[in-house]
Every structure is written in structure tokens, then in C-alpha cells.
């Protein structure tokens, strides 16, 4: 799957939890889940669980530790799908 395809899927997953529409509309690989999209940290757990369900992968705690922005999320998903 290309990063562009992954970003589209990720955008769909994070949409229910975002609290900054502007940052969401202008989302890039640099976008930070908490600082930019203002996702509540408890909802970041939901994002991770939704990613696991969507891609049928398991994100262990070591991988989760870096799940702070789109770039790292893409890298983690790509490595688990490989």
C-alpha cells in the first residue's frame, strides 16, 4: 500500500477524534496527533485500536510509544504490513 493510500485510511480513522478541523484539512506526514489535531490522549488509544482493526495488525507497546504523529504511524503500519 502506498503512503498516500495509507494516509487516506488514517484520515478516516482519526476523523471522529480530532478537535482541530483546520489541522485535519491540512494534514501532512508532519501532523502531530495531540499537538496539531488536538486528539485527547485517551482517544489516541482508540486511534491505535482502530488502526489495529482496520489493518488487522498488532501494535505492541514499543511501537505504540512512537505513535505521536502521522509519519511514525505510517512507518509502523508499513513495517507491520510488510
Amino acid at each position: 500500500m502506498t503512503n498516500e493510500e495509507l494516509i487516506l485510511k488514517l484520515k478516516k480513522i482519526v476523523k471522529p477524534y480530532i478537535q482541530d478541523e483546520n489541522a485535519f484539512e491540512n494534514l501532512t506526514e508532519e501532523t502531530d496527533f495531540i499537538n496539531d489535531l488536538k486528539i485527547n490522549s485517551a482517544n489516541l488509544v482508540d486511534v491505535i485500536l482502530d488502526v489495529e482493526d482496520e489493518f488487522d495488525i498488532e501494535i505492541d507497546n514499543d511501537a505504540m510509544e512512537k505513535m505521536l504523529d502521522i509519519k511514525n504511524a505510517l512507518a509502523i503500519i508499513q513495517s507491520k504490513l510488510a
Partner: peptide
């Protein structure tokens, strides 16, 4: 250094 790992 930020990290997201509530279990830690």
C-alpha cells in the same frame, strides 16, 4: 522526549 505508552 515525548512518548505514548501509558503502561510505562
Amino acid at each position: 522526549k515525548r512518548f505514548f505508552n501509558p503502561k510505562k
